[in-house]
Design a binder for these strands. Structure first.
Lengths: 140, 140
DNA sequence: CGGTATCCTATTAGATACTG
DNA sequence: CAGTATCTAATAGGATACCG
């Protein structure tokens, strides 16, 4: 079994105060866990409470077992999610945000909700962009 | 030449108020443009002003021509970035955020800066997570 | 239930070469 | 300068099977 994200490069930007814009800075990796396709949705789901594995799978529409598992591990490793396993039979595992995770999720949700709230503008921009392109392509 | 993101699924969740958690909702696509690896960094760079193509390439460390071009097109199509081309020779093209893009970038930067500011905690969590795993793996 | 291991495909990203 | 085209390599992602 391989580590989750070991190949994340050297930690040689401590002095640069963790600048995401630099390659090989660990903050870039964490940012990707947070904003990545499944990371963002998982944090979003957990922002509303504590959930079990399969509850999360249903909430995060379209995620596979594999990706959810991988995502949860990455977030747990980064200290954003806490995993609470009861050694019962059948097993019961609950996932919830840590205080740090909650703080991150809050900022993430602010972004998500803002984007959702302006989707009409985005769709309008897309329509006009595509309209221009098609007229340009049309005249060969 | 193919459209940038046409296969983004039907727009059948207008009634669900653009729920990112649903598959095939356009807000998920836009969210991915915004939070994606290069999208986030590009918006971050443009948050500090207007830049030319190669200036951006230098600011967003590690991005290839291809990915920057692709990213900028997606963001332009979503109405977040404005492209200003002067038909001079040599050509000069400036990119800057639209008002909507600025609003998005602000929320995004809040998230990025927060994560950067807490990287010490993240790194600590990683260290302790890895320590536990290695002791577990060690006892075979 | 709550996962992991494996295999395989699709998408993404990078290098390189070239154009207006 | 500001890209596009093309090819290849790396990675993400999904399906399936199986374990505790």
């Amino acid at each position: 079994m391989k580590p989750i994200a070991q190949a994340e490069g050297a930690v040689d930007c401590q002095d640069l105060a963790f600048d995401v814009f630099s390659r090989h800075c660990p903050s870039r990796g964490t940012l990707e866990h947070v904003t990545g396709r499944w990371g963002a949705l998982t944090l979003g789901a957990l922002h509303e409470g504590s959930f079990r594995f399969n509850e999360l799978r249903r909430r995060v529409d379209g995620v596979s077992e594999k990706m959810l598992s991988q995502t949860l591990h990455a977030l747990e490793r980064d200290g954003l999610v806490h995993r609470e396993a009861q050694p019962t039979n059948p097993p019961r595992v609950d996932y919830e945000l840590t205080p740090l995770g909650r703080a991150v999720a809050e900022r993430l949700m602010a972004l998500i909700h803002f984007v959702e709230g302006r989707m009409d503008e985005v769709l309008e921009a897309r329509a006009s962009y595509d309209a221009k392109r098609s007229t340009l392509d049309g005249r060969a």
